[in-house]
Simulated scan of single mutants.
Amino acid sequence: MLRARSQTVGPWESFGLCPYGAYYLIFPLHEPAGRIPWVATEKDYTGDDYGMLRARSEAIGTWEQFTITWHGSGPDYITIKARANDRYVTTERNWTGSRFGMLRARSTTAGPWERFQ
């Protein structure tokens, strides 16, 4: 599960983007060479796990494709929209324990919790 929870940037907080047609693929930079698990949207999960982002895919399909939109001139922030369910990725900031900061593609609008720098 991907979570936005760290106060510092290290190897586990670093991700790469790869253009893929009109979309992007997201992958963690901390994985060993030769194995790239693409980030996927778990759209078949139910309840609180619906839309959870996980770095687990070894093949590329609709679940691994995202639209990245830059806002501002800096960019000031980006939004990430999953192709799998056409929802914006949000950070679950009000949850506690192991789900704190979980990233899920669940929002139909891009508000403060759907903005990333």
Rank of each mutant, 00 (worst) to 15 (best):
G51F: 12
L25R: 06
R104E: 01
H30I: 00
D49E: 12
P37T: 06
G111P: 01
R56V: 09
T91V: 13
T109E: 09
T91W: 01
Q65K: 15
W70V: 03
R87P: 00
C18R: 09
R83L: 14
L2H: 02
T96W: 14
E92R: 04
G47D: 15
K43A: 13
Y20T: 02
Y50H: 12
E64C: 06
P32D: 12
T62V: 13
T46V: 12
G47S: 15
L2Y: 04
G51Y: 15
A33M: 02
S73T: 14
K81P: 01
F116V: 10
R87E: 04
L17R: 07
N85Y: 13
A55H: 11
D44P: 02
F66L: 04
I80F: 10
F15E: 08
Y24D: 04
V9K: 07
I60P: 11
Q65D: 05
W38C: 01
G97D: 11
H71Q: 09
R106L: 13
W95K: 10
Y23F: 14
T109Q: 10
G21I: 09
M52Q: 09
M102N: 04
L25M: 06
P19I: 03
G61W: 13
T8E: 09
C18P: 02
L103A: 01
L29K: 13
R83A: 04
